[in-house]
Design a protein around this nucleic acid. Structure first.
Lengths: 237, 237, 237, 237
DNA sequence: GATGAATGAGGCTTCATTCAT
DNA sequence: GATGAATGAAGCCTCATTCAT
């Protein structure tokens, strides 16, 4: 887990490896507690207890409780930035990359559902300067999606749209799975949600040329719109 | 302002009209403070001061601080449920109603931007039973959008899609204007945002038949996709 | 007890009389505790307990613990400013006034011995802006002494000396009774200490003309250098 | 620097020379920090950092934080006891010795102004048994002054006064330069302060016989009452 | 001998809630 | 009905001290 993203959060402890390990330990406990009880209802004692250390120790690694929140939120955003590139690795077709990116985003969000909600709840609890770090990180992960869109447009697969605005639609779509899970889980499975979303977005964005590629893409997939399962040997199919 | 939506919130005061007036007074102050500082950073004293009453008085009208939050969130959701039907009043064309509903939703959200963010931040701070009331209210306002969608589908203007899932896309689109305003305001105006959104959604949903109606609709409007300005007498144009 | 000397110390409570009463109550407890245990070893809980109130209440009347210290120190300095003029009331002879002022100063210090030590121990624990208020108050009480000196010099009773420097010698003489009481009490009584001091200072300051007046003054007193006991009717003696 | 004055302060380390060196190192750092920030606001970590050692090491040489304070205060008092005899070395005239002692005392205090204030602030923070050691040390340095006084009286230069009481006047005079420096520095230079003081004290104490010697003494000095600059060869003048 | 990470008790301060007026 | 002074529980954070390395 990345926990030195924020150089502002400085530690009294000098051993860098230890700092990484301890922070990861605290953040793991904190994300869980913040996610389930909320930031304000979680005490430093709670975090210390769950992390199996004394409360004082935490203050050797962060300045204050808000620092713990900052590191926690950054670790959540960071997990997005880890998963998406990993899912895209080796893929070259712009349209496929775009669909896989959305798929991957939705799946990380599903895995870290509570943490995703936490980001929406608690970012405003940060001071302005700390919040700025979150914004930077958010823009970076947005850009993973935006790059896929731009590529599709450049290749004539998608029509010319405002990339950043559409990026927010895609990102928000992924987040919504977490934010409205209480209702969505009654309406659909995650797979169904993703399938419906990709259907919707492609419908909104594909050019006629793009449509031909999209149909080919679907054929090469085992099941429609399941962008996890890559054909092991597409040529053989 | 509706402040007796929640029958669970009972008052020690018997005069019903007074209860309504006082609650509206507290909630107005509370929404403002919760929006700007957050729920936990706002004290009952703050609210009392801003409302121009004593802190003790608040406890004659609510059981505890969480009740104030509940009423505040309900009042925000309620404003959505007020504005959308009002914008739709007198309109009969399904496609137009759908576009106007989205337009209206985005505009209420814009007017109550901070309050919209508040709903995302603080709903989870409510106890489960209170949160259930919020969910009911949210479903009700969602249904205003869903009804428009269903109508369009029934009339063959939109293709057959999962109405509730698409509803969440539309609702989330409106909310996103508030949630990501720090970035979106640099990318677009509210009008541009709405226009782009409606363009996106129609593209995703319209049937060939729907397309013909959509083009007609746009012609009858003063400017493309500005669904506020209704032609006074369309026939005359 | 004066407890609104410092306008910077503002209260959340509006009733001015109550503010005065409560602060006096807290300060009385605080001075006693600070004097015996020191500022840092005394907790707000200690003060609250001794004052018979809850710890939270104190914070309705002061901003923080340092405010309690400020008010405590001001109340000590204030007692000097009360006692000296009172002792001087009705006296007109410059030399007598000077001796009585010293006598009175030593006696207040004796009565508030621990509190006087407190002022030396804890003034530096105040923030610079609060310490400035203490300095102003100290200069004011110094001026009570300085005025007597100036008068004596103007009347030719004392020789021309640097008034402010000598004032510090006199003031320090009084304070030393408290500061070094652990030793001085073994060397002398308060009366003896005062007598010796006045003898010392007059020796250092009197002009030949002053000497004549000094001898007359001593004769009119019941016992040498006891400047408390004023002859009821000096002419009768 | 003397740091084994207090046999009660025992060390876990056996090498006596090392103990001396380490303690001197800690005390130097501690005096500086205690003087500027106060005892309670200074942490052991602060001292360790400034001394360039680990915090744990300090506890190999003292029992607790109060021991550090004790050693610090003793080192301050000790510097008085070093300077005064050094200034008196070689002088035999009782009156001159007395004046030089006062002069020297004021000058040490001036050099260690903050440390002098520290002694007043923090002696009462010591436990009774530790404070007793301070008192002993204080009496010892007082005795350096008292001896000069006694000598002057024996030689008929000063009148018969209570030596210990007057000693406190002289000692306090020196300390006051530090304690009230915030004000005194606006009223006088150190030289002016000393000159005024010696003028004052001689006035108060000299016998007629003493006066003759005093005038001779002043003549032999380069500038009036500057008791630092000894005439290299008085006979030659 | 020296290090510095770890402990955990303790204190200041806040604030929801009560209740006498 | 309204006030606002009073309560006291609770949490963040500090820091003297210890101890494994």
């Amino acid at each position: 887990m990345v926990t030195n993203i924020a150089p502002e959060v400085t530690s009294q402890v000098t051993d860098e490896a230890l700092v990484q390990r301890r922070r990861a330990q605290f953040v793991a406990a904190a994300v869980e507690l913040f996610s389930s009880q909320g930031y304000y209802r979680t005490t430093i004692q709670d975090i210390a207890r769950k992390a199996g250390v004394s409360s004082g120790l935490i203050y050797q690694y962060v300045r204050d409780k808000e620092d713990v929140l900052l590191l926690s939120l950054l670790s959540v955003l960071d997990s997005y930035k880890q998963e998406i590139p990993q899912a895209l690795a080796g893929l070259t077709d712009p349209l496929e990359r775009c669909c896989v990116a959305i798929d991957a985003y939705c799946r990380v969000v599903d895995q870290r559902r509570e943490a995703t909600v936490l980001a929406y709840r608690s970012t405003k609890s940060l001071s302005a300067d700390r919040r700025a770090l979150i914004k930077v990180s958010e823009l970076e992960s947005n850009d993973l999606i935006a790059a896929c869109l731009r590529d599709c447009i450049a290749k004539g697969v998608f029509r010319e749209v405002n990339v950043e605005l559409v990026t927010y639609q895609l990102v928000t779509f992924a987040h919504t799975w977490a934010l409205k899970h209480w209702r969505l889980k009654e309406l659909s499975t995650l797979d169904g949600y993703i399938e419906q979303g990709i259907d919707f977005f492609t419908q909104a964005l594909l050019t006629p040329k793009g449509w031909r590629q999209y149909r080919k893409l679907l054929e090469s997939r085992h099941s429609k719109a399941d962008f996890r399962s890559r054909p092991e040997n597409p040529a053989a199919e």
